[in-house]
């Protein structure tokens, strides 16, 4: 927690520059340094961003739920807005997971959509769930009730993630008898380094975007207050 609170004091331009640098390094590593996968060849290079983006999306949803809990539990002022922005980031990254995953499925198995890919299906469920979150939020007037509803629904989300994952796993045996076994890359050497750098770059990018959006939203609220003052 202390790391996060320290991170929130880093000025925004520094964050933006750091994520740009890290992203450039990550892309260079992905395209020029990481070796071709023995099994999947060049197409395995999607993995570095696809998996990192997925993890980042989970982190955003978890952060949203954490802020939601803070709102319900400690009544932190501003926790509601932070929770909403984190969930919003999560949905953006979740959409990117669906898009990149779909492209990966096309290269590897020749179909744009595969019900056998656990993570894709899970992200589809989560996408539907969090779209409903926005519907809920925008059909209640701003105020304590909206904050409570959003917070409670965001908490449902973090319980839904593992439950849905389990459900999709056990559903495979009757929905899809043939199981695609993706031979995981042998982690080690440059593959591991590239993955870690890409992961760090995306987490930092997500955090930067989160801060940008949060600043905008807070500014918006302040201007609105001034207008009615």
């Amino acid at each position: 927690m202390r790391v996060v609170s320290r991170l929130s004091r880093v000025p925004l331009p520094a964050l933006a520059v750091a994520s740009l640098v890290l992203m450039t390094v990550a892309l260079t590593l992905v395209f020029y340094v990481a070796p071709n996968d023995a099994d999947q060849g060049f197409s395995q290079r999607i993995f570095y961003f696809h998996v990192s983006i997925a993890f980042t999306a989970y982190a955003c949803f978890a952060a949203g739920a954490w802020k939601a809990l803070r709102h319900l539990w400690k009544r932190d002022p501003g926790a509601d807005l932070e929770s909403y922005v984190a969930v919003h980031q999560g949905v953006i990254f979740g959409t990117l997971v669906l898009l990149t995953g779909s492209i990966w499925a096309k290269i590897s198995w020749g179909h744009w959509w595969l019900w056998g890919e656990d993570e894709l299906v899970l992200f589809l469920v989560l996408f539907l769930f969090y779209c409903a979150y926005f519907m809920l939020r925008f059909s209640v007037d701003p105020g304590p009730q909206r904050a409570n509803f959003s917070a409670v629904y965001a908490l449902f989300g973090v319980v839904l993630i593992p439950v849905s994952f389990l459900a999709i796993r056990i559903a495979k045996s009757f929905v899809h008898p043939e199981v695609f076994t993706l031979h995981g890359p042998n982690f080690g050497g440059w593959i591991l380094v590239t993955y870690c750098v890409a992961q760090a770059a995306l987490l930092l990018l997500a955090y930067t975007l989160y801060r940008v959006e949060l600043t905008g939203k807070r500014l918006d609220a302040r201007i609105r207050e001034l207008r009615f003052a």
């Binding site: 769930f129 779209c131 409903a132 849905s164 999709i168 056990i170 559903a171």
Partner: peptide, 14 residues
């Protein structure tokens, strides 16, 4: 229905 159906998917699976 919008709020409920995503949460009901695990129930349907089970």
């Amino acid at each position: 229905p919008l709020l409920f159906l995503p949460l009901a998917i695990p129930i349907v699976v089970g």
